[in-house]
Write a protein that binds this DNA or RNA. Structure first.
Lengths: 247, 247
DNA sequence: TAATATTTGTACGTATGTATG
DNA sequence: TCATACATACGTACAAATATT
């Protein structure tokens, strides 16, 4: 017998697992729970929802993949951080799975990353504080001290782009920026893109130009500097497209 | 005994379920599979990966939540569409779970939606064909024929914003636009936002202004029209913020 | 330090629902 | 209608991790 409570509300509808997942979300909303709050144990969910442990576990696992819940072994199940790690994973996999379609997924990624910074030029330049600018400068120095593509450079680059949009105060944009940076950094190395040595040398300089433009308060100059930062990547993609066949 | 192949590569690392999920993704990449391709059956995965049915099923369920695989009952498991339904669900839930923090999640959503259209004004105006413009006009007519908030209006609105970014040829932007529209449309009704009757009347007119500006080829006018389209929503959020306490 | 209770992780067997031929 | 292949669901048992005592 497939339980009672949920099963009853499941006549001709979707799978029991989906119903259980929806019920768990409803529970979180009804109790106005916050990230980090403790959810009922699996056994309790089984009893409450009238489903077997397998079904409950599978439902919980799909919610965990979306960062809606977080499961800690031997501890319990908690409300998740609701971050966009799921997005990053999905977009990354998309890029890895179709590397031969003219690098389209990768190029799309670059466009979106640029949009977040260039399209918010006014807001970013207006909201950046001297403290922000100094921190950005330090990160550029950090980049210049490490070889491009290395550990230190990569970490500084991620922090740079995160900090750049942070003053906007838009949490969604901040998380999207990080998710897309992660995808970009993961997909890139799997592509056959040729990065000339002299281009590696100018990477830190491009970032420095962005900070300088921001410090000057000139939104147009800032937008142009952002454009110059992303232009080389587009050039590499175009070069690879030309090389691999497409006329 | 916890199998052999995967379990061996799992000394001191993460859970078996995670290993199985990674292995499935590796399999998809190694075989250069495409959305719609058939994956091995659960039994085969159990045998190949040396894991039990439970572990394999839970792993598959987390991949299904990310639209990386798609499971069809009685049919088999296929490579998923790699869409951003996961993003929409996560963002929507985030908005629903924290409706009392000054509508921040909702306001963030509006900002991002506007960014996709306003920030791409140049590209959109340049790429829109006469056929696109006519289709957009038809959708506006459709909106004007239906009451705001109704079924017909909502469908036309979604199609409008989808079509608006479509000529950019950026699949990622198109999918993000749709995902955020879905979140916006789902979260909005749960918030106590007051929409004056006269504002409902002007909704179609705002969309018409966007199309007219695009037809004129003036990117600045287009950007301004997009701004006018989203401004009322910001007004409602600001009004609600003022009403519920925050000075 | 060690024993114990709680909770999630893994495994296996069985029965049922669903689509194809 | 029947047979086959597949996913769905249930129940039980034990392993592993994390506390508390």
């Amino acid at each position: 017998m497939p339980g009672a409570e949920v099963a009853q509300a499941r006549r001709g509808r979707s799978s029991l697992r989906q119903e259980v997942a929806d019920e768990i979300k409803r529970h979180m909303l009804a109790h106005r729970m916050r990230p980090g709050d403790l959810l009922p144990t699996e056994s309790e969910l089984c009893a409450t929802l009238g489903a077997s442990r397998s079904s409950v576990r599978e439902a919980v696992k799909s919610l965990a993949a979306l960062d809606i819940v977080e499961v800690r072994h031997g501890h319990g199940t908690y409300v998740g951080g609701l971050g966009l790690s799921a997005l990053a994973e999905s977009v990354t996999f998309r890029g890895l799975l179709s590397p031969d379609d003219d690098f389209r997924a990768y190029a799309d990624l670059v466009d979106v990353r640029e949009l977040f910074e260039r399209g918010n030029a006014d807001g970013i330049v207006a909201a950046l504080t001297p403290a922000h600018l100094d921190a950005l400068d330090d990160l550029v120095t950090e980049m210049a001290r490490h070889p491009a593509g290395g550990e230190g450079f990569t970490a500084a680059d991620r922090a740079f782009h995160t900090l750049l949009v942070e003053p906007l105060g838009n949490d969604l944009i901040s998380q999207l920026t990080q998710a897309f940076w992660d995808s970009y950094a993961t997909v890139g190395p799997h592509l056959d893109l040729v990065t000339p040595g002299d281009e590696r040398q100018t990477l830190a300089a491009h970032h420095r130009a962005v900070v300088d433009a921001a410090r000057s308060g000139d939104a147009s100059a800032f937008a142009a500097a952002i454009g110059a930062h992303y232009a080389p990547v587009r050039g590499r993609v175009a070069a690879a497209r030309g090389a691999t066949g497409r006329p």
